[in-house]
């Protein structure tokens, strides 16, 4: 029998709950949105997970600068990698949703541009990491960039869209799902889904960290 810690079991249960309940459970019948409202469980949760992973990356970069351990840098790097994966999936699910409700895969919108910019920052972070040979130097310089860029990115994603009108729910006079669309039935799936996908992200991250540590160990032998 596979030995997994409790939160991994919780993750498996929550993901399956999200999949089953998300596709089969009752949802409010709303015009235009129709059944695409189910995408809420997958698209929005991706961004929640990405923001949490970006915060992890930010925190571990700060930790690295105050205490330069290789572990801190590895966590920062891997959480950024998994965060980028979630960001890409978030953009793709969002594009499918946008095509079906707004009629186009991409619209010029503050929130969408913020999402694209978040992926740009991640890409820049990885390019910087590749440009530095020396390991400790790479860790230090990329930590500095991560703190600088991720902080500004959070401002860009969280503050600026609230200043303008937006098609996207939750901005500029356009109410978020929480106000009326998200009824009690949907909440029962949505919050577990957020937790489930975040745990999945942490799980992937943990595996990647272990792989990197083993590779490192192998190189030293």
């Amino acid at each position: 029998m596979l030995k997994l810690s409790w939160w991994k079991w919780l993750c498996i249960v929550l993901i399956f709950y999200t999949l089953i309940e998300g596709f089969l459970g009752p949802v409010p019948a709303l015009p235009i949105l129709n059944e695409t409202i189910r995408n809420l469980y997958f698209h929005v949760t991706m961004w929640f997970a990405m923001m949490i992973l970006m915060t992890v990356s930010l925190v571990y970069s700060i930790k690295y600068l105050s205490k330069p351990l290789a572990h801190n840098d590895t966590v920062a790097e891997m959480s950024a990698k998994v965060g980028m994966l979630f960001g890409i999936i978030g953009i793709l699910t969002g594009m499918i949703w946008a095509k079906n409700t707004w009629g186009a895969y991409w619209v010029n919108d503050a929130k969408l541009n913020g999402a694209a910019a978040a992926l740009l920052v991640y890409t820049a972070y990885f390019i910087l990491r590749n440009a530095i040979e020396d390991e400790t130097k790479r860790a230090r310089i990329s930590s500095v960039y991560a703190i600088f860029a991720f902080t500004l990115m959070m401002v860009f994603i969280m503050v600026l869209p609230r200043m303008t009108d937006s098609l996207h729910p939750g901005n500029g006079g356009n109410p978020g799902f929480s106000t009326y669309d998200l009824d009690a039935n949907m909440r029962k799936v949505f919050y577990p889904a957020v937790l489930g996908f975040t745990l999945l992200g942490i799980w992937i991250m943990q595996l990647k960290i272990n792989i990197k540590k083993l590779q490192h160990f192998n190189d030293e032998q």
Partner: peptide, 10 residues
């Protein structure tokens, strides 16, 4: 340029 653009966006 690569590092600067995303940071300059806001």
């Amino acid at each position: 340029a690569v590092l600067g653009f995303p940071v300059l966006l806001p």
